[in-house]
Simulated scan of single mutants.
Amino acid sequence: MSININSKLDSQNNFWDIALEGELDVSTADKLKEHLHKLAEEEIVDMKINLTNLDYIDSTGLGVMIGVLKKLKIEDKEIYILNPKSNVRKIFTITGLDKIFKVEG
């Protein structure tokens, strides 16, 4: 199980453009946590996380996103979840996190 993370700052529109690929679970969550916190330290702006190529997410992965969202909310910033596959979207819906994150697509 692995995860690939690609990110770039869209300074024109003022947000982090992040794409996740693979599986986000207990074995890959720390990698994402370090990456997202590093981005937030670099620049506190909204994060748009594209999940088009994310095949799986578990509660550990959700916890990482919640932790980063709390940090961003202090500065009135958001995390947008873009294009989740149906099985990933279902996890957000079941947990009620679709009400906390901005889920689009």
Results as ranks from 00 to 15, higher is better:
N53E: 06
L69P: 00
T28R: 05
K71S: 10
N14S: 14
I79T: 07
K73E: 01
T93A: 05
S7V: 01
M47C: 09
H37L: 15
I91Q: 09
Y80C: 10
F92S: 06
D98A: 01
K38F: 06
A19Y: 07
K38A: 15
T60F: 00
K77M: 09
L24Y: 02
K70Y: 04
Y56M: 12
E78L: 02
N50C: 05
D10I: 13
A29F: 01
H37E: 12
K99Y: 01
L20D: 07
G105T: 09
N13G: 02
V88P: 01
I91A: 10
K8I: 11
I3A: 04
L82T: 07
L69E: 06
I5T: 09
I18H: 06
F92T: 12
W16I: 14
N50V: 10
L24I: 10
L24F: 09
K48P: 05
I79D: 01
G105C: 09
D55L: 12
E21M: 14
K99W: 00
L72V: 03
M47N: 01
E21V: 12
G22T: 07
F101L: 09
K8D: 02
E43F: 09
K38G: 09
I57S: 03
I100V: 14
T52P: 05
D55S: 08
T93F: 08
K38L: 14
S27L: 14
G61K: 11
R89N: 07
E21C: 12
I91W: 10
L82C: 00
N14H: 09
S2W: 04
I44N: 07
V64N: 07
L82P: 00
N13P: 08
G63N: 10
K8Y: 05
K99G: 02
I74T: 11
M47P: 03
T52G: 06
L36S: 07
L62V: 11
K73L: 02
T60M: 04
I49C: 03
E21I: 12
I5K: 10
L9K: 13
T93L: 09
S86V: 15
N87A: 06
K102A: 06
M47D: 02
I79V: 08
S86G: 05
K99L: 08
I44C: 07
V64C: 06
I81F: 00
V68M: 01
V26M: 15
V26A: 12
S27G: 08
E104L: 14
E104G: 04
G22I: 04
F92M: 10
P84A: 11
F101R: 15
I49H: 08
V103M: 00
G61F: 02
A19I: 12
E104M: 15
I18F: 03
K48W: 04
D17M: 13
M47K: 10
K99C: 08
V68A: 00
